[in-house]
Design a protein around this nucleic acid. Structure first.
Lengths: 233, 233
DNA sequence: TGACAGAATATGTAGCTACATAATACAAAC
DNA sequence: GTTTGTATTATGTAGCTACATATTCTGTCA
């Protein structure tokens, strides 16, 4: 690599970000045009464009056609969350994965579940309750509703052998996913299954997935005490 | 727009994604080369490249030089989390924002805080405890440590008038941010400040920010009961 | 003064080429 | 048979051009 190698778009991004971070451009300020940056940094406009796109994606900068690019006056923290399949998560942490089906029944979902799935009228669904274990210890308790309209084959799957989580992920890719994170006190039943005291603070990941506009499943995954979701960017 | 308008990279992405979702390519399968897709869809390879990049970012496919592109055998859920400045969050929900400084003192941080900041040796920091309110009700209780090495000016800021959250966001942009999400039972002090019972399940967002490798601040934001973090993608 | 049409402008996108880089496959040498 | 070097191949990146699109600015006319 020669000393004056060409700048990659990441170099350009870092250059511009540093200029912003150093205070050379204050929040709300308008930045030079892409073409000017290109001239300043001696690279192509397309390179600056890619860099700016990235800065825009990460919430540092705001871009508007004709309006130009300006430093976001109200920065937001944007971070990528990654939620793997539970078996993989356990194994990646070095644990031995285990799984228990607790209950499985077709039922008409309550209004809350219909709302999460964006259903106006209740449709028949399969409710599956299961426990995921790590090294024999309760790890995540899931309470899942699966749309029988969208996934009728689920009736034929043996959910004592394979978790619905895993089967769906492998057989029913989704096009959209909503997440909802919060904390709840353990109910008596959940507490018993998770091996904790009733009322304990539990972390919940609620996830609904769709294929196009058809709901596939909505899960409430209740994590055992001590569970943490970590991101970094 | 003519009927056979050129495909945008998003069209190409959707086309390929649909092919995967429909099962035409199964998890683990190798996809055609970018150039082949380009020929099939009658567009440029760069357009396919952008589409594939996006599919790769969202965790649907895996790309390797020479190895080609394959459908991820172990799909992960990736979602973008967006955490605004608290004042904005409250106002966006239509609430009236309020703020109270509870305590502020220079101190040597405990080991846990040093670790979060990646500090080997304890350095003096400013600890700030404050309560954010929505319509007069407790909303988020924050327990913050600010690095006096990185942000000495914070000593001169009147934190009764403006929250550290806001001042830092406007004056100290960061280059890196780690998030940690979990649930805890309310301690006596936190319970009183948040107007809830001791032991109540509370949602916690822990965030540490750096400028390059220098830690700026680490916060533990404890949300009042009912708080939910929502994402969609 | 106000409304509206059209010009100007900055970003967004697509296409092409050329070359870089990483991973694999294969063949030669020991 | 194993190792090592080289060729091949698929993706990654940069540069350029051309044109699309959204907004703002400006000038004209009522």
């Amino acid at each position: 690599m020669s000393p004056d190698a060409r700048l990659s778009w990441k170099d350009v991004r870092d250059e511009i970000r540093d200029a912003i971070l150093s205070g050379r451009y204050a929040p709300g300020d308008r930045l030079p045009r892409d073409a000017d940056f290109a001239a300043m940094l001696n690279c192509a406009r397309s390179t600056v464009q890619r860099a700016m796109q990235d800065l825009s994606d990460s919430g540092i900068v705001e871009r508007r056609r004709k309006g130009g690019t300006r430093v976001r006056p109200d920065p937001v923290t944007r971070a990528m969350l990654e939620i793997p399949v539970i078996r993989r998560e356990v194994e990646q942490k070095g644990g031995r994965y285990g799984y228990q089906l607790i209950r499985q029944a077709e039922a008409v979902p309550p209004a809350g579940i219909c709302a999460a799935c964006g259903l106006a009228a209740p449709a028949p669904m399969l409710r599956v309750e299961a426990l995921h274990l790590s090294d024999g210890q309760p790890y995540i308790l899931e309470d899942r509703w699966i749309s029988l309209d969208t996934v009728p084959e689920i009736r034929a799957v043996d959910l004592t052998a394979q978790s619905a989580n895993e089967w769906l992920v492998l057989n029913r890719p989704y096009s959209r996913c909503d997440l909802r994170l919060y904390a709840i006190p353990a109910e008596t039943g959940a507490a018993r299954l998770l091996g904790t005291a009733p009322g304990a603070a539990l972390f919940v990941i609620e996830r609904t997935t769709w294929i196009d506009t058809a709901p596939i499943t909505t899960v409430r995954a209740i994590a055992a005490p001590g569970y943490q979701l970590v991101t970094q960017s």
